[in-house]
Write a protein that binds this DNA or RNA. Structure first.
Lengths: 252, 252
DNA sequence: GAGTGGTCTAGACCACTGG
DNA sequence: CAGTGGTCTAGACCACTCA
């Protein structure tokens, strides 16, 4: 429950909705509301003696931060806390493994599989033969989706993969067993991006918050790129780690 | 200017404020509003024949995305576009260098310098002698702040650094020239975080959007950690790149 | 003082979930 | 059906900027 003793200060420097956000945040984290459901908007309007718009604005802030989730017709709930996961990108480890190491169940679902004639690709992949095979997997733990990975491979490799293969196996497994290619080098790019409407849908996140995006180009021994994958990660769940030995000597 | 011909569809699946956001975004990027200032809220209310709250909600979305900035008493403006910068973390390169490579002027400002008795540090740094020296630098280009770096070093190294040193030199330069230590290994952690109130202030960003955060622990040849730095990066500006050779063989 | 964006109110109608 | 959150309206007052 939410403490009623605290009172809003009208005419303060701090806006009413900010004061409400602060109070809710504090009381949620200090365990006063261990349960799932929060008071309804109508109740909060009464307790804080403000308008509904002000209460909503305060709650929206916490929704954007991932602390709360709201469902029309049901109510407002403490977002199910997700484990913090550190994914090492300097080793070849499927995301499944990263999650299992923290004792999590992970379910994957293939949400796209198809050939594409004119994909948008990084410059480094201009030499690939078309069409390319592209597929997307969704990762879910405790009923909560937390990552989408999109993989693209050139035609000569993609033709070795069946729908059933892709549904079950990590990409590096398929590259080695099915396509008989061994990645020996990978280039990574980390960035933050707005989710597309589709991604915000399947990852159940607000369209205004950001995704942590990890792109990877893997190359075989000859330096030819053999796969291009993009990982869309919920930033409240994932961290990425890298260790670099033998730091090159300074230049300038 | 904003095109008046497009019309909102009332009763559509898509909310009015979303339609307005879409139209503004499209017309801004398609060059119809090359200038700086957008129509005022009052003008948009008239053109779209909606309430002010709806127009504001549409614009707020673009402000959160960093497309627009609003200033009370002045108006709403296209946010000054910042260059996209890729910072390689597998080489030792100061941020200054990264920016200069894209032809940017960069100014730095020391915004904090002091000793701290009880800092919060990663476990790996528990062995450090206290107090630790901590300082923060703000990076500004084209008058727009885009990064804050916070550096912490143990007492035995920090005592070699003067305020003037820190104001002018990259950390790795000081480690080698002043403290006579050479980092040979570094561990990185990449994450997304809410800015603190102080960070959202100096980086001029909304408190509800996320920062790209890069943490680094550098070690000398004996494996002792010699510095811990945290880089708070505006996600609309920075990307991080890593290349890994000799991918380890698969495990499971 | 006129004009800007920042906050807040008190309503309204709707779509969705549940009993 | 009553109750939830999602959207929208038409006002109001304020702090700030600039002429």
């Amino acid at each position: 429950m939410v403490d009623m003793s605290a009172v809003l200060v009208r005419g303060s420097e701090r806006a009413l909705y900010e004061q409400i956000t602060d109070m809710l945040r504090h009381q949620l984290t200090s365990g006063l509301a261990k349960g799932d459901q929060l008071p309804t908007e109508a109740e909060l309007v009464e307790r804080f003696a403000t308008s509904r718009a002000t209460v909503r604005r305060a709650m929206q802030q916490l929704v954007d931060e991932g602390v709360l989730t709201r469902r029309r017709g049901k109510g407002t709930f403490l977002a199910r806390p997700m484990p913090k996961v550190v994914h090492p990108i300097d080793r070849v480890m499927p995301f499944m493994e990263t999650f299992k190491q923290v004792g999590e169940d992970v379910h994957t679902k293939l949400i796209h599989f198809g050939w594409e004639e004119s994909p948008v690709l990084p410059e480094a992949l201009n030499g690939w033969d078309r069409p390319v095979l592209t597929f997307q997997r969704l990762y879910v733990s405790r009923g909560v989706p937390h990552a989408v990975t999109s993989v693209i491979v050139p035609r000569r490799i993609g033709r070795m993969f069946s729908h059933a293969d892709v549904e079950k196996n990590p990409i590096y497994h398929m590259l080695q067993k099915k396509a008989k290619v061994t990645p020996v080098r990978a280039e990574f790019l980390v960035s933050c991006r707005q989710p597309t409407p589709q991604l915000s849908e399947v990852l159940e996140m607000s369209r205004s918050s950001l995704l942590l995006v990890l792109e990877r180009i893997s190359r075989d021994a000859e330096g030819h790129p053999v796969e291009y994958s993009t990982h869309f990660l919920r930033p409240d769940v994932y961290q990425l780690s890298v260790a670099i030995d033998d730091l090159p000597s300074r230049r300038s």
